[in-house]
Design a protein around this nucleic acid. Structure first.
Lengths: 239, 239
DNA sequence: CGGCATCCGTTCGTTGGCGTACATAGCGAC
DNA sequence: GTCGCTATGTACGCCAACGAACGGATGCCG
């Protein structure tokens, strides 16, 4: 944990004016986000918001029968906990760390205080939330119309955009939970991507070999979401 | 068109303070919203926002190949055009009138002016947006895990909540576009609901006979969304 | 360096929804 | 009342994904 916090690792923090960061400095803490850690539970009170830096966080919907489905993913371009400032302070979804790493944690009250000043923080966060909404909407449509093969490509690309390097530490079982499909289905789809020479993997590690081909094979959803993030967030924020 | 506008027909308008309504009065107009009218197009600029009263508006995602999927529905409890104040001024989805009726139209600039005062309008609209987000997330998960039968029940109930009476003017073809499935699939599912005595229909009119049974047969998604709307919006706003 | 938990591969039958094609029937216009 | 458009009913083969079950492999840990 460096003495001088480097807020540039999260794009939202990086875009904030100095005076906001100065106010936040005493209350914002770097934290480890280990794989599987639940940042908030469905319907639970939100004591903090999180700004991931090297971690990836999944917004996961868990149904009554235990089945799950990812509705959006948040990395160093975003913030976990938008429902805090949107109002209500909870959502019926769960936020869980999908790829281990670090992030910053900020107390809910401090965030709210700043939000209620109705300055640049408010506008930046609302634009980010709009981008998140796009991702959710796209996920809904994608779940309806695209096959597992394409969705796996989309999902790999979305994750890749939020990581450095081209390797994901990720079991097929975990991916299947995110996509809301069976593990066997992921095995089959991944096998085909492997045969085509796009990826390589072994026991919980996936390496992307041919990213352009992955983009070509993915459904349109990846591209749409990416473009919308680029449009809505300041240039230096683009993923 | 009455001389005295009755803003109580839309719950958001009804919840606004008098001084806001007074400022809006010169700029807000009752409008007819005929079936199929497109209020805004994917990616298009948003010149107005709409407050439905008796109409229902679908937020529809249209894919490259022409396939579509509804991501949320808006009626007298809401507003069409949240991406205006969220930032960006457009979304990659389309807003189309799903059930003909009336609503109010307000110029985008007037809305923005009020929103930027950062008063009760801002907070009310953000809470509503949060409810809308819940609906989208639920739709995403529902699309993944529940079968057409259950989804049709959910969809009928969501529509019914936004109408007076128990009759929907709605062809199966239209429903299939909303749900993102084939028309034949809707015919089959509707036939089963009919056999079970829950609904009755003839050529573009569906009558709900046994609402409790419909709720029992629906997936959990309807209940979750409904509860979240009730929680997030003031009591008198509850659908 | 060996044991073992965990991850990945594969199989078989089932099923819900798709694409296509065509038949019937309600309802408005004339 | 008849015509014709459009909504609804039905049938066939097809395929992606499901559920369950089990074998094989890898790499971590002692």
């Amino acid at each position: 944990m460096p003495i001088a916090l480097n807020f540039n690792d999260n794009s939202l923090l990086a875009a904030l004016p100095q005076d906001v960061l100065a106010r936040w400095r005493p209350f914002i803490k770097p934290v480890d986000l280990p794989l599987g850690k639940i940042l908030y539970e469905s319907g639970g009170k939100m004591a903090n918001v999180y700004f991931p830096t090297t971690a990836i966080v999944s917004l996961l919907y868990v149904m009554e029968n235990g089945a799950s489905a990812e509705i959006a993913v948040v990395g160093h371009e975003g913030i976990v906990g938008v429902s805090l400032f949107m109002g209500g302070g909870s959502t019926p979804s769960r936020a869980v760390v999908q790829s281990a790493g670090q992030g910053y944690r900020l107390k809910a009250e401090v965030m709210m205080q700043e939000f209620n000043r109705a300055g640049p923080v408010l506008h930046l966060l609302l634009r980010y939330t709009q981008a998140l909404i796009t991702q959710m909407a796209q996920t809904a449509a994608c779940n309806r119309h695209h096959d597992l093969d394409q969705q796996l490509c989309r999902w790999l690309l979305l994750s890749l955009d939020r990581l450095v390097g081209n390797e994901l530490v990720m079991t097929q079982e975990l991916i299947s939970n995110m996509l809301g499909v069976r593990r066997e289905g992921v095995t089959k789809a991944a096998g085909e991507l492997h045969k085509a020479g796009l990826i390589e993997y072994r026991r919980g590690r996936i390496t992307v070999l041919d990213r352009p081909a992955l983009e070509a094979r993915s459904c349109e959803c990846y591209e749409v979401v990416k473009k919308e993030y680029a449009r809505l967030l300041p240039v230096e924020l683009a993923i």
